[in-house]
């Protein structure tokens, strides 16, 4: 499994530094969530690591291999965009098997991999559906299965829960967390919602003005936020954790 290191990354648009000497390290099999307000450079960071954008300065290193000059298709980094980008002309099976088809898997092997992934994301029986026939939560799981099918060294998730309706979000979040834990793939995820970030991430990196302000486990972030920027971003979690304690206390009583 991959160890990701981002070193002193810089990216500017129209004279403005969106990513400003950003450094980050994600341990093998760890799920790191990058959190920050809209426009702080989270998606840009993912696209730089993926290779869809070129950094102005800095290095992207996976397992001691610098990826800067490698095209996307040779990085073995799978990506799930915010709106999932499921290929509309392919069925669920066709979408998940896409990467296997590129790698010239035999039909039987493709079916085996796709069927096991559909079971893993709890979507067995939907292989012949088209993306237009799926709910937001189902699309998210198909996009995840598609990314995992190629056994990537690194998985990038861009706001995986933002296009899921609130009614099913908790279930989808739980399923996502379980799947990531089961697949044991190094994951870098982007989220703006602190509840999503804290529930998915082994560690959470707070980004502000294109830099990592603080990177720690969710509990340590709550105990010792570095400054007012971090406190403001994670503030809803204090309310949620108080509510959780109150509910737990009343249940004990």
């Amino acid at each position: 499994m991959a160890h990701l290191r981002v070193e002193q990354l810089v990216k500017s648009y129209g004279g403005k530094r969106v990513i400003d000497n950003l450094s980050l390290s994600v341990n093998p099999q760890e799920t790191m969530v990058v959190m920050g307000p809209s426009g702080c450079g989270k998606t840009t960071l993912l696209l730089l690591i993926l290779g869809a954008l070129n950094p102005d300065e800095g290095n992207i290193i996976v397992n001691d291999r610098t990826l800067n000059d490698l095209p996307i298709e040779r990085r073995e980094i799978a990506y799930v965009p915010q709106d999932f980008a499921l290929f509309p002309h392919l069925t669920v099976y066709g979408n998940i098997a896409f990467g296997l088809r590129v790698r010239k898997y035999e039909e039987a092997e493709k079916h085996k991999v796709v069927d096991s992934l559909l079971e893993a994301v709890d979507l067995g029986g939907l292989s012949e559906r088209k993306p237009s026939e799926l709910s937001g939560g189902q699309k998210q799981r198909v996009a995840l299965a598609r990314a995992l099918a190629i056994c990537p060294s690194l998985l990038l998730l861009d706001e995986p829960l933002s296009n899921v309706d609130e009614a099913t979000k908790a279930d989808v979040r739980k399923n996502l967390k379980e799947t990531l834990a089961k697949m044991k793939v190094t994951t870098l995820c982007v989220a703006h919602d602190p509840e999503d970030a804290f529930s998915l991430g082994d560690r959470v990196a707070i980004i502000h003005n294109g830099r990592v302000v603080q990177c720690d486990t969710p509990s340590r972030l709550l105990e010792a936020p570095k400054d007012s920027v971090v406190r403001r971003l994670i503030a809803p979690m204090y309310v949620l954790s108080k509510d959780a304690s109150r509910i737990s206390a009343s249940e004990d009583a």
């Binding site: 993926l50 298709e73 990506y79 896409f98």
Partner: peptide, 17 residues
């Protein structure tokens, strides 16, 4: 703009795929 090309490339697709 839908990002299909980036996703396809991330799955290993070359230009002909």
């Amino acid at each position: 703009s839908a990002g299909y090309d980036i996703v396809a490339r991330s799955l290993g697709a070359e230009t002909r795929h």
